[in-house]
C-alpha cells in the first residue's frame, strides 16, 4: 500500500453513556477510494465528524493527512474537502456565488477563484445555470457542484458523506465517474453510502456495525470470505445482528 493518509487507533466517541463509535482502528492509503459502510445509526457520521475536525473524540488517537485530530484540527481542515450528507451549499445563492464564497473562505485569490470557478462550472456543464439560484436546480446537479466545491482548494483527501442520496441510478453512475476522475488525479476519497452497487466501486470497504468495524477488505475478498455473490449479501450478513438498526 502507498503512504498512509488516515490512521485511527481505538478511536472512540461517547455521548453520555451511549458509545457511538467504539474503538475503531483502521488505515487509509493515499489515493484510495475507501468505502465506509454501515446501517443507519452505526456511527459512520460520528466517525467522519471526528476525522474532519468537527467533533472531538473521547478516546483513542487518529491522524489525518499527517495531523493529529486533537491538536491540529485546523491544519487537517486545510488538507481535506468535505461534502456532507445534508446537501450543504447555500440554496439561495447561485452556483457561481457558492463557488466564490467557499473558494474565498479557503483563501483562494480572486483571479485564481475566477479562473478555477469558470473552468469548474464548464466541466460540470453548469455554464448556462451558473446564475440560477441553487434551489431551482435538480438534486443531481447540486451534488456534483457540492463535490467540486469540496475540491476547489485542491485537498489531498475528500470526505463524502452519502453524496448520492436520493437520486436515480444514472445520476449516481455519473457522480461515480467524477469520483474515479478525482481518485485518478491522486486524491484520496473517503465515501459513505447506502448503495451496495457503489460499494463494489471502492478499492476497499469497511462495514460498521453498532459502532465497531465488523469487516474491512476489498469487495472481492469480502465476498469470498462470506461466500456470497454481492456486496449486498455481505452487508446483510454483517448488519443483520445489529442492535441499533432502525
Amino acid at each position: 500500500m502507498a503512504e498512509t493518509i488516515i490512521r485511527t487507533e481505538r478511536l472512540t466517541k461517547r455521548f453520555g453513556s451511549f458509545t457511538a463509535v467504539d474503538e475503531i482502528s483502521f488505515t487509509v492509503g493515499s489515493g484510495e477510494i475507501f468505502g465506509f459502510l454501515g446501517a443507519n445509526g452505526a456511527g459512520k457520521t460520528t466517525a467522519i465528524r471526528m476525522l474532519t475536525g468537527l467533533l472531538s473524540p473521547t478516546e483513542g488517537s487518529a491522524s489525518v493527512a499527517g495531523f493529529d485530530v486533537y491538536r491540529e484540527s485546523e491544519s487537517i481542515k486545510r488538507s481535506i474537502g468535505y461534502m456532507s450528507q445534508r446537501f450543504s451549499l447555500y440554496d439561495d445563492l447561485t452556483p457561481r456565488e457558492n463557488v466564490r464564497f467557499f473558494g474565498g473562505i479557503y483563501g483562494l485569490g480572486s483571479s485564481e477563484l475566477k479562473e478555477k470557478g469558470e473552468r469548474m462550472l464548464e466541466a460540470l456543464d453548469l455554464g448556462h445555470a451558473a446564475d440560477t439560484r441553487l434551489s431551482a436546480l435538480p438534486l443531481g446537479w447540486k451534488q456534483k457542484l457540492a463535490f467540486s466545491v469540496a475540491l476547489l482548494h485542491e485537498p489531498k483527501l475528500v470526505f463524502l458523506d452519502e453524496p448520492t442520496g436520493g437520486v436515480d441510478p444514472v445520476t449516481r453512475r455519473r457522480f461515480w465517474d467524477l469520483i474515479y476522475q478525482t481518485a485518478s488525479s491522486g486524491v484520496t476519497v473517503f465515501v459513505t453510502t447506502h448503495y451496495m452497487d457503489e460499494a463494489e466501486y471502492c478499492d476497499r470497504v469497511s462495514i460498521m456495525v453498532d459502532g465497531r468495524i465488523a469487516a474491512l477488505d476489498t469487495p472481492e475478498k469480502l465476498r469470498e470470505r462470506y461466500e456470497v455473490n454481492t456486496m449486498n449479501d455481505v452487508f446483510i450478513r454483517l448488519a443483520r445482528p445489529a442492535r441499533r438498526s432502525e
Binding site: 474532519t52 475536525g53 468537527l54 485546523e74 491544519s75 481542515k77 486545510r78 481535506i80 468535505y82 456532507s84 445534508r86 446537501f87 450543504s88 451549499l89 447555500y90 440554496d91 467557499f102 473562505i105 479557503y106 483563501g107
Partner: peptide, 17 residues
C-alpha cells in the same frame, strides 16, 4: 438548522473571521 454551518466549520476559517 440547514447544515451549512458544518460546511463552514470544516474550512480553515478562523473564529474571529
Amino acid at each position: 438548522e440547514i447544515g451549512t454551518i458544518d460546511q463552514i466549520n470544516v474550512t480553515p476559517i478562523k473564529r474571529w473571521q
